[in-house]
């Protein structure tokens, strides 16, 4: 296994005065897909936001691609090559599909050190988006918005994709398409950090999992052994 691309050690995070994360540690290696699993309110989303610098946080070690990102503002972290696909998609609803993608493409600036995505390659992956380039983001269905949010993150040429509950509020059949798409991205070499409640999604994509409960790390290991823990142990780490 190669050296970790993302190293997180002793991460604490707050929402206002409320402390959400307690001494969380995890890592993502190059080319690997890692799941953060846990019930709602466990702190999965906060972990990802803390990573992006969107909430107040503190860590003993917070290193991405060899760069200490603990004190960097959000935009600098993103520029190092992290593609963030947030909970609730957060598409710019007043902008067209094409404009949404343009925002993430910074002209003149170096990309995010990851593989560059041409518009053609992007539209090969998301044929739906190619057909609706002039449509306003707000006029798209939830599943289409999810795809746009993913495509938007790819435009910035990331090395690591950070996905926050892509299956929440989406029809099961769309979830299946998404599993295939994310799987293909992983196969192309992208590293993936996925927060999910849907176990089937994690299982289809991820190599390893971290289970979080009430802001703390509860369990970590290969995806397969979590599977066994679920099947054979009534006191599974999830309860």
């Amino acid at each position: 296994m190669s050296a970790p691309m993302l190293e997180v050690e002793g991460l604490d995070a707050w929402y206002g005065a409320a402390r959400i994360l307690f001494d969380l540690s995890f890592e993502v290696r190059r080319g690997e897909a890692v799941a953060l699993i846990g019930p709602n309110g466990a702190g999965k989303s906060t972990t990802l936001k803390a990573l992006m610098g969107l909430v107040r946080r503190r860590a003993r070690r917070l290193v991405f691609d060899g760069v200490d990102i603990a004190d960097l503002p959000t935009y600098r972290i993103a520029r190092l090559g992290i593609g963030y696909v947030p909970e609730d998609r957060r598409i710019f609803t007043d902008l067209t599909v094409a404009e949404n993608l343009d925002i993430a493409a910074r002209p003149g600036a170096a990309g995010g050190h990851g593989p560059a995505w041409s518009r053609e390659a992007l539209f090969d992956l998301f044929p739906n988006l190619a057909r609706m380039q002039d449509r306003r983001g707000g006029a798209m269905s939830g599943g289409e918005q999810q795809m746009l949010s993913l495509a938007r993150a790819l435009v910035s040429a990331p090395q690591l994709l950070v996905l926050d509950e892509p299956s929440e509020g989406v029809a099961p059949i769309i979830v299946e398409q998404m599993i295939d798409t994310i799987g293909a991205l992983k196969a192309s070499g992208l590293s993936i950090l996925l927060s999910e409640q849907n176990y089937a999604v994690c299982n289809s994509i991820c190599d390893r999992a971290y289970v979080i409960g009430q802001g703390e790390l509860r369990w970590s290991g290969p995806m397969a052994s979590l599977d066994e823990a679920r099947n054979h142990d009534s006191a599974s780490p999830l309860d």
């Binding site: 699993i37 299956s167 029809a171 099961p172 059949i173 979830v175 299946e176 599993i179 999910e196 409640q197 849907n198 176990y199 089937a200 999604v201 994690c202 299982n203 289809s204 999830l238």
Partner: peptide, 15 residues
């Protein structure tokens, strides 16, 4: 199943 539920592989319960 075709319009909504899919094959069921993604609806295998919540983790």
């Amino acid at each position: 199943r075709a319009l909504y539920l899919g094959t069921g592989r993604a609806a295998g319960g919540r983790a």
